[in-house]
Design a protein around this nucleic acid. Structure first.
Lengths: 197, 197
DNA sequence: CCTACCGATCGGTAGG
DNA sequence: CCTACCGATCGGTAGG
């Protein structure tokens, strides 16, 4: 038995009930030891949260950054980034919920560390959007950062409704969201991307 | 002095720190009375949260439902719904954050009440999307509910980044988000809606 | 609206 | 990893 089981239990519990209303006693019950014994494996509740959020954000950066930096056209890159996000989110719902929302409960120093990673995450999107505008693939939006927030918001909402046992696969969800982001809902089928396989 | 000040203080505090980590003592300090005195005006912390979320959700339903039911074409309705959402969100950031995220902390009976209102909110979007497909204004999406979640997610993210003192007005933000939702990022300017005034 | 207080629960530790 | 416990804080109440 090790720290790993404690982290896994904490991810599920923090994701379900939130950090402040998950007690160390809840976590200790989930892993089957007594509350005080947790502290052989971890330093504090705060450190547990920091580690989870830090790893979670890193997982997204590792999945998205290579796509953003690839040589593909910006529209292809945006589509792949969206699909990659949905895939990671579908496989890590609890982790994603914690990383997206619960950094607010970190102390100031730790929140600053995570803020840097979050800014990096944001830059993945603004970079691809800027590239797309410069290469003439995207209409110049009124504000690039705002357009990035539109896409990021769409994605951040996924773990709130996606069901691993539902009818839609992560692939299908990613395709559908990429279509909204790239072509919107209205307009002719000319803008509709061809189904690839 | 009355219950109103307590509600206002609770909205700000719940929005900033979250429900579980806001204490009744925090709220009592914000309104300038002692903790026990709160209970002359409110029944419990739970009831305070329920009232806030219920009113918040009602505010959105009141703003969006009439637009959804209007006789305008579906694309116009969707644009107006998005703009109305952003306007309400910009004027009620704390309230919106609480209503969107903190219903999870309600007990089961109260959570069920709010779930009904949330389903109604969701139907505003699916209805307009369905209308748009039937009238030929929208391309048939792979899944209407999923397309609705894309738009809702985009909107739910707004209170996380919108700044009332920032450069963009709610109007501008609403226009920009409506453009992404309706036309997407890529494609010809033919799909770009004309600026209206 | 205050004084004074309740039992429950919190994160964490000393000492084994 | 357990026993036993710490001081702090929690939502809420009785009685005025």
């Amino acid at each position: 038995m090790g720290a790993e089981q404690i982290y896994q239990a904490a991810i599920e519990l923090f994701g379900d009930r939130g950090y402040p209303s998950t007690s160390m006693r809840d976590i200790s019950e989930a892993v089957g030891i007594l509350p005080g014994s947790l502290y052989t494996h971890i330093r504090s509740k705060e450190e547990l949260l920091l580690e989870i959020i830090s790893n979670g954000t890193d997982k997204y950066l590792a999945a998205l950054t290579p796509i953003a930096k690839s040589a593909d056209p910006a529209d292809v890159r945006l589509r792949e980034i969206i699909k990659a996000y949905v895939k990671v989110a579908a496989e890590n719902i609890g982790l994603t919920l914690v990383a997206t929302h619960q950094w607010k409960y970190l102390n100031e120093a730790n929140r600053a560390k995570i803020a840097r990673k979050r800014a990096q995450f944001e830059r993945v999107f603004t970079q691809v959007l800027t590239d797309g505008v410069e290469s003439g693939l995207f209409r110049p939006p009124r504000d690039t950062r705002l357009a990035a927030f539109a896409i990021i918001g769409m994605l951040n909402w996924v773990p709130e409704w996606f069901s691993p046992t539902g009818a839609k696969s992560p692939e299908e969800v990613g395709d559908a969201l990429a279509e909204v982001a790239l072509s919107g809902l209205s307009g002719a089928s000319a803008a509709t991307p061809k189904k690839r396989r």
